[in-house]
Structures are given as structure tokens and as C-alpha cells.
Simulated scan of single mutants.
Amino acid sequence: MNRAEREAAVRRIMERTAPPVPLDVYTEAVRRGERLLRRRRLARRVLWLLACAAAVAFTVWAARTHPWAEPPSDTTPPVTGW
């Protein structure tokens, strides 16, 4: 099959009308699609909620413990009486 024959075959396929889709297949596809969109929307909201809760928890922890401050040294006693 050369290029011209392939192009002609493709044109014949493209010019055909699509067979009608049964109504029950269409309604089932719409129902499943809506359910999938609802689940994705719920998952997205839950993930955003978890991310915000984690950010708040980290902020509260950091504000209370000050992890950026150097802890006092306990290895040597204070020098007095020199």
C-alpha cells in the first residue's frame, strides 16, 4: 500500500458517519464522569486542607520552640572567681 492508497483509505474512514451511540452508554459515561469529577474535587479539597493544617502546625511549633535559636551550652560550668 503506497502513500496515496493510505491517504485514500484514511479519507474514506474519516468521511463515514459515526455509528449512533446507545443512550444507556451515553448516560452511564456521563454519570461516571460526574462521579470522577466529584471525587477529584473532594480529594483536592482534602489535600489543600491537610496542607493548610500542616502549615499552621509547623508555624505554631516553630513559634513555641524557636528551632533557629542556639541552645545553651551544658558541657562546661560557668567560670567564676578568676
Score class of each variant (00 low, 15 high):
residue 2 N to V: 10
residue 4 A to L: 04
residue 5 E to P: 05
residue 5 E to N: 15
residue 8 A to Y: 02
residue 10 V to P: 00
residue 11 R to H: 14
residue 12 R to I: 06
residue 13 I to S: 12
residue 14 M to K: 06
residue 14 M to L: 10
residue 15 E to W: 08
residue 15 E to Q: 12
residue 15 E to N: 14
residue 16 R to M: 10
residue 16 R to F: 02
residue 17 T to Y: 06
residue 18 A to V: 15
residue 18 A to G: 09
residue 19 P to Y: 05
residue 21 V to T: 09
residue 22 P to A: 05
residue 23 L to Y: 12
residue 23 L to A: 15
residue 24 D to N: 12
residue 24 D to H: 05
residue 25 V to Q: 05
residue 25 V to F: 05
residue 25 V to E: 06
residue 26 Y to C: 09
residue 26 Y to M: 13
residue 30 V to S: 00
residue 31 R to L: 07
residue 33 G to D: 01
residue 33 G to V: 00
residue 33 G to K: 00
residue 36 L to Y: 07
residue 39 R to K: 11
residue 40 R to W: 03
residue 40 R to V: 08
residue 42 L to A: 15
residue 43 A to D: 13
residue 43 A to I: 01
residue 44 R to W: 08
residue 44 R to V: 03
residue 45 R to T: 01
residue 49 L to D: 12
residue 52 C to M: 05
residue 53 A to Q: 01
residue 56 V to N: 03
residue 59 T to I: 05
residue 59 T to L: 15
residue 59 T to E: 08
residue 60 V to S: 04
residue 61 W to M: 10
residue 64 R to G: 11
residue 65 T to G: 02
residue 66 H to T: 09
residue 67 P to N: 11
residue 68 W to C: 03
residue 69 A to N: 14
residue 71 P to T: 08
residue 72 P to Y: 05
residue 72 P to E: 07
residue 73 S to Q: 07
residue 75 T to P: 00
residue 75 T to I: 12
residue 77 P to C: 11
residue 78 P to H: 10
residue 80 T to L: 02
residue 81 G to L: 10
